[in-house]
C-alpha cells in the first residue's frame, strides 16, 4: 500500500453473508443459554415453592400482558414482511415496515412500563414474594434486550435511509428481534399462564 492512499482500518476480510450469520447465531445462541438458565432456575424455585402466588391473581391487570403479547408478535410479523419486501427489491416498502416494527417495539416497552407501574401500585413488587422476583427479573431483562433490539432497528433504518443497506443487515437484526419475541412468548406461557 503506498503511503498516499487511505489507511484501511481493517485488513482485507471476506464480507460474505454466512460469516456474519454464523457470528450472529453464536451470539443469539448465547443469549438463549442465558434465558434458558434463568427459566430453569425459575422452574426449580417454582417446583420447590409449593404455593406460588401468595395473592389473588384476579386482582391484577393482566390484560396488559395479553395486549403486549399481541404487540410483540405483530412487530415480528411486520419485520418478517419487511424481509419479504427486501427480497422483492422493494426497499421503500421495507423501510416503512422497519419503521412500523420500531414503533411497535417502542410501544411494547411503553406498555411494559405502564404495566410495571400498575402492578407496583397493586403491591406486586419485586421484593414481596418470589412470584414478583421472577416476574420483574425476567420481564426486566427481556425489556433491556428489547431496548438493544430497538437500537438495532434504528441502525437498520439508518442503513436503509442512507442506501448502505445490505441484505445481511436485515437478516441479522431479524434474528435478534424474532428471538426476543420467542423469549417473550416463553415468558408469557411459563410465567404468566402456567
Amino acid at each position: 500500500m503506498s503511503s498516499g492512499t487511505l489507511v484501511k482500518k481493517t485488513a482485507q476480510l471476506p464480507e460474505d453473508n454466512f460469516t456474519s450469520y454464523l457470528g450472529m447465531i453464536i451470539g443469539v445462541g448465547s443469549f438463549a443459554m442465558l434465558f434458558i438458565a434463568l427459566f430453569a432456575s425459575y422452574g426449580v424455585l417454582r417446583i420447590r415453592a409449593g404455593v406460588w402466588m401468595g395473592y389473588t391473581i384476579g386482582t391484577l391487570p393482566l390484560i396488559l400482558l395479553w395486549v403486549n403479547t399481541v404487540i410483540i408478535c405483530s412487530s415480528s410479523y411486520i419485520l418478517f414482511k419487511s424481509g419479504k419486501s427486501i427480497k422483492a427489491g422493494n426497499l421503500n416498502t421495507a423501510r416503512k415496515y422497519v419503521f412500523a416494527t420500531l414503533c411497535f417495539g417502542a410501544g411494547f416497552l411503553l406498555m411494559q412500563i405502564i404495566l410495571w407501574n400498575t402492578l407496583i401500585a397493586e403491591g406486586f413488587i419485586i421484593s414481596a414474594h418470589q412470584a414478583g422476583s421472577v416476574f420483574y427479573m425476567l420481564s426486566g431483562l427481556h425489556g433491556l434486550h428489547v431496548l438493544g433490539g430497538l437500537a438495532a432497528l434504528m441502525w437498520l433504518l439508518l442503513k436503509l435511509t442512507q442506501n448502505k443497506f445490505k441484505e445481511k443487515h436485515g437478516v441479522m437484526v431479524g434474528m435478534f428481534w424474532h428471538f426476543l419475541t420467542v423469549v417473550w412468548i416463553a415468558f408469557f406461557i411459563l410465567v404468566v399462564i402456567v
Binding site: G29, S30, A37, S41
Partner: peptide, 14 residues
C-alpha cells in the same frame, strides 16, 4: 465459553 458463560451470567443476575 459461548455455551456456558451465559449460565454464570444468569447466576450473577439473580
Amino acid at each position: 465459553n459461548a455455551l456456558f458463560v451465559p449460565i454464570i451470567a444468569a447466576g450473577l443476575i439473580i
